[in-house]
C-alpha cells in the first residue's frame, strides 16, 4: 500500500492519493494535501471540507457535486471556483474521505 507524508506525518493513501483511513486526518494534513493540489484553503474551502466530513460520518459516503450544491450552502458555480479540478473529488481528498461514487 502506498503512503504519503503530509504535515510531517506518514499516512496510507490509495493509488489516487486519497487517505485510506479517514481517522488519520487532521486539519494540518488537509492544508498539506490542498497545497499539493495547488489550493490555499480559505474559510469557504473549510466550510465545504467540514461539510464533506460530516456527511461522510453520517452516511458513510461523501456527497457528489449535485448534492453538495443543493445542501452545503455553496453554489455549484462557487464550488468549481474553489475546487477547479472537481469539487466533490478534490474536497473529499482534502477532507481525507474516500472519493464519492455517483454518476450525477
Amino acid at each position: 500500500m502506498p503512503s504519503a507524508t503530509f504535515a510531517g506525518k506518514v499516512v496510507a493513501v490509495n493509488d489516487e492519493g486519497f487517505l485510506e483511513n479517514p481517522d488519520e486526518w487532521s486539519e494540518e494534513i488537509a492544508s498539506a494535501i490542498a497545497r499539493a493540489e495547488g489550493i490555499e484553503l480559505t474559510e469557504q474551502h473549510w466550510r465545504v471540507i467540514k461539510f464533506m466530513r460530516a456527511e461522510y460520518a453520517e452516511k458513510g459516503t461523501g456527497p457528489t457535486v449535485r448534492v453538495l450544491g443543493k445542501t452545503s450552502g455553496v453554489s455549484i458555480k462557487e464550488l468549481y471556483l474553489l475546487f477547479p479540478k472537481g469539487p466533490a473529488k478534490l474536497a473529499a481528498k482534502i477532507a481525507g474521505i474516500p472519493k464519492p461514487r455517483g454518476c450525477i
Binding site: 457528489t64 457535486v65 468549481y80 472537481g86 466533490a88 473529488k89 478534490l90 454518476c103 450525477i104
Partner: peptide, 11 residues
C-alpha cells in the same frame, strides 16, 4: 448530459 457533468466533476 451525464457524461459532460461527470467530466467536469472529474476536473
Amino acid at each position: 448530459l451525464i457524461m459532460a457533468n461527470g467530466a467536469r466533476a472529474e476536473g
